[in-house]
Design a protein around this nucleic acid. Structure first.
Lengths: 254, 254
DNA sequence: GAAGACAATGTTGTCAACAATAAAACGTTT
DNA sequence: AAACGTTTTATTGTTGACAACATTGTCTTC
């Protein structure tokens, strides 16, 4: 019976190095596909063929299949019986539903983050939103703005220290990423968002969790309102850019 | 090219009947396993062998594998490289994390449900919580109480009409189900819960979404507080029943 | 008698071939 | 020329065998 104990020890020692190495390829493939879907490199409704991906990435078809299973659970693709996998097409109502969810989840995230960390630790974020981010908005450099926002968001999630919450936020954020890129170019949205983020950060900087949650929620809700207002232009994309410009003029000058 | 059109029409006609029939076996297996895990028929840390399930249910091993993938995504099992799948073991901190989530999600659910339905439609629930449920609590019939609560909860989710929210609530509820069965037997918890549910229902009955959300959140939070108070007894189960009884006496008479 | 190497066993991961299905193309009939 | 049934093709779903791996038990050595 001593051998058993000994073996158990050996296992403990070995179990660490391999932990991360496993499904590596599978995770890689999943990440690539999630990115492609988020950036709409594969259009909504587009097909994903098993063999195609299998050969492209040099992984067994069974692995592609598993990745499909994971993506299906995340709600990014839909698998129909003998027809294969297609990227899900978000309709308007679903987007609003997701915004309702983001409202409460991001709110909770802000509250937890404020509770779990010292007020001073947010100073660098305050600085970022005072300086660089303001520049990005003025210049219309939305990519940099989004990148900065991404950093802020990840800091919040990390500080909240709630893995399940983190998973949920990830899974719905990637669904709306395509939409966000269209909202942010709307007239005044970036400026509005900037000041809202500053308000949230101010509450966090002074260590007020409840207020941070409340402000984050109104932030999300205003994003939803923007979407509601300009929904036609956001959803039907490039074809309506001209009409959008006309509407902006009417909105600003009218 | 007319043939193409014709075929397309044929497809539309046929596509309905088969939609639900597909992954039926897979979904079946998934449901069975989720139930077993929720009811702790498979203990936390227990192994799930692919071949074993494959033969037991008469399904191909690949299907078992897919189900495992889905369960892993839901966070019910964990798959380690070449060792197989084990039921995840919830530690205390995770349970509290999940309660934070339930607080905001069930709150949102109550708000949406109130917004989307007429106040009168909740009358039957009010009646249930006034009459039968009170009886169950008095008799200590916790199974019936839980069943009634389950009905209420499903009505809320259905009325909220937000599929993504529904999915999230399901996925975290089944994780806590085992815990809930231990909380409800705590001194005074069922009575407390009953009056809180009544308060939520009253707000819904008079069509006040914000108040319904607020009350539902305090309801969840009080559940969390109960858990925090009696955590030692809840987590370590039967072995501490005697100590629990002693504590109840101290709590009630002391 | 304990420590380490080594083979034995069972389980998962991978792969390739086959069957089932659905969409499309084709040909026939009216 | 349109409607219908049949065949063809492409793709997924399934099956079984095999390889890789981890764990356990045994054996040798000190």
């Amino acid at each position: 019976m001593t051998t058993q104990l000994k073996n158990a020890i050996k296992v403990k020692q070995r179990s660490k190095k391999k932990d991360g190495a496993r499904g590596k390829r599978g995770i890689d493939l999943q990440m690539v596909l999630r990115e492609r879907i988020a950036k709409q490199e594969i259009a909504p409704g587009g097909k994903l063929r098993e063999q195609e991906l299998s050969t492209e990435f040099g992984v067994p078809r069974a692995l592609v299949r598993e990745v499909f299973c994971a993506l299906e659970q995340r709600g990014l693709i839909e698998r129909i019986p003998n027809r294969g996998a297609v990227v899900v097409r978000l309709d308007l109502s679903q987007v609003f539903e997701i915004y309702d969810l983001r409202e409460v989840l991001e709110g909770l995230c802000a509250r937890l983050a404020t509770q779990n960390s010292s007020p001073e630790s947010w100073q660098d974020m305050v600085d970022m939103f005072e300086g660089p981010m303001e520049e990005y908005v003025k210049r219309g450099d939305y990519e940099s703005f989004l990148a900065g926002y991404g950093v802020f968001r990840r800091r919040l999630i990390e500080a909240a220290a709630n893995p399940v919450l983190a998973g949920m936020l990830d899974s719905i954020y990637e669904k709306t990423q395509a939409i966000i890129r269209r909202i942010i170019i709307l007239p005044g949205r970036a400026e509005h968002g900037l000041s809202e983020h500053r308000a949230v950060l101010a509450a966090m900087r002074r260590g007020d969790p409840e207020e941070a949650e409340r402000l984050r929620r109104t932030n999300m809700r205003s994003g939803k309102d923007y979407l509601k207002r300009y929904q036609n232009f956001v959803l039907f994309g490039v074809s309506s850019q001209l009409r959008l410009l006309a509407m902006i003029r009417a909105d600003v000058f009218g």
